[in-house]
Structures are given as structure tokens and as C-alpha cells.
Design a protein around this nucleic acid. Sequence first.
DNA 1: CATCAGGGCCCTG
DNA 2: CAGGGCCCTGAT
Length: 323
Amino acid sequence: MEIKLVKSRQFVIKPTAPYNFDATLFKPSHYPDPLKVYEPGKYWFAMRFEDKIFGVKLVNCGSIDDPKVNLKLFYKERLSSQKLKSLLDELKFRCEFDVDLSEFYDKFANDRVLSPFLRRWRGMHESHTLDLYGLLMICIFLQNTVIRRTVQMTRAMLEKYGTLVKFDGREVFVFWTPEQLAKVSEEELRKLKVGYRAKLFIKSSRSWIAERINEFELRKLQTNEARKRLLRIYGVGPETARILLTEGLGKYDIFDHVAPWQQKILSRLLFNKPLVPASKIIEYANKRWDKWVALAVHYIWEDIFWRHARGEKIEWLDKEIRL
DNA sequence: CATCAGGGCCCTG
DNA sequence: CAGGGCCCTGAT
């Protein structure tokens, strides 16, 4: 399916400083997907909100310490002013426009490990431009495979079940809904060469509905409570739960799982050693960065991927990052 | 040509 | 609580 959004309205947002537009919205550690378009200082994506689809174009027109974002909203039908306000609030959450990081910066300004990263990426936040269900789909695409295949499966599924949204001369997909996918047969999905994940997509969508997962409610819960709810979804284990909590729900106080490939990279970055036990890494990071642990690790993590993306040669890294 | 591991999870014993 | 199996594909 595809839709074209022509009508638009513009807004000027003043995020809480410091706000690093590019580092917040674009994450070089993520695999390439057709869900967004990024250019330096510009970001396009589409979203579902209250059963309607919107196109969003963000343009940076400020600086890290005096941030200003031009937000252009593309839509089909005019919104009531009340709906519009809740949509803008949602975008505020998704882009972390109003999340104040000053405590984080005060606390770790002199942290021997973290401070160089804080200087380099000042104003970087997590961002959550996908909704929680979409992020779950991404996590399933990532499970137990190589990136190349993840990219192929994502495209195949989006072309068949997603919606292509055209606006501002760009095209991005939005995900299907859990209700849509819950009705699809396993054989039909398997034709798209997603393998055993066919069952996962269907069962996780069904349990998403059965568990009445509501991301707005989950955001309000304590991290551990939200985690318990998420783990009840079929196909969600410790790693997916961690990703959903940090990248989906904006929780920064969790870092409880390190996959083997992440372990290799973090061993180098934190201990300058080829391999440190995962439990050591987790303990070290939590003790040191406490309730900001996920954000702290995120700074260190994204830094190496930015350097990689910019073509910097880091010998030991190349074999760990496979695209 | 065959074998295998890969950015987890479920299920079983 | 450890470990096998899962789809498919490119790399070896």
C-alpha cells in the first residue's frame, strides 16, 4: 500500500539544551532500513498516530547549545487543535526534545572514562522515532542472522505489508499493525524468506494484542515493571527487552544484557582487552554510571560507529561490524 | 561441492 | 539452568 501526503504545517521547536540534532536522530550503529531518510541536519520519517499516518520532516536550524528545530508535519486530513497538540507531544517524546540531560552532564563531567565522549557528542540523546511495535519487528529481524539478511527481510516484509508514505519528495515506510500481521498465515510469510521468524512475527503480534501492550502506559512504569510486561510477549527475551526499554521507551537506567558481539566491542572500548566476561562489563558500567548507565554506554557505543561510518580505520573493529 | 555461523529465543530435560 | 534447534544465505 502507499499513500501521498500533501498538506502540511510547520512548527518551530526549541529543544532543551544541549541538543545534538544529528547524533540524537541518526544512529550509525543501526542497520540501514527504508523507514527514514537522513541527511546531515535533516531527518524524514513517518508515523502512525491514533490510526492515522503522518509524515515528519525535521530540519536543524539551531546549534547544540541554542537548539532550534523546524518541524514540518504532513497529513491527509486536518487535525483538531487538541489532536494536534497530542501529536506534537508525542513527537516531543520520540525525539526527546524536552529531556533534560544536565544532571547527566554535571555528574560525569569529570568521569575519566566518559568525559571525552560527553565532549565529543554533547547533547546526544536516544531517539524513538519508531513506535514500540515497529521496534519489536526490527528486533526480530535482527535475531540470529547477519545484517545483510536482516536488511533483505525488512525490505521484503515492508514492501508486502507496510505502507509507503510519500511526502516532501521522499518515500519512507511505516510498519503494519499487530492486528494486520496477526491474520497472516505462516506459509505466506515464509515465501518472503524470513524462515522461522514467520512464526515469531505472527505469535508476537498476537501476544502483543493479547497482552494489551500500550506503550504510553509502559513509559510511565518503573523500568523493571515495564521489563516484566515486555518479557511476556512471545519472542521477547532479555536482549529485545533491553532494546525496547532504552530505544523504545526512553529508559536510561538499564544495562543488564550484553550479547557476545557487543561484548567483544565493549571489552576493547572499556578495558582495552580483547574479551572481558559479560558479567564484568555489566557490573562495571552499572556501578559507574548507575541510573544513567544506558545513556553512558550509548555514548561510547555510538562514538565508535560514527568513527567507523566516517571511514576511520579501526583495525580490530572491522571484523566485528559486518554490513 | 558441503559445511557453517550469524547483532536470540523458545523449549526441553 | 544449560544446550539444542530454528530458516536462510554468504563466506569458507
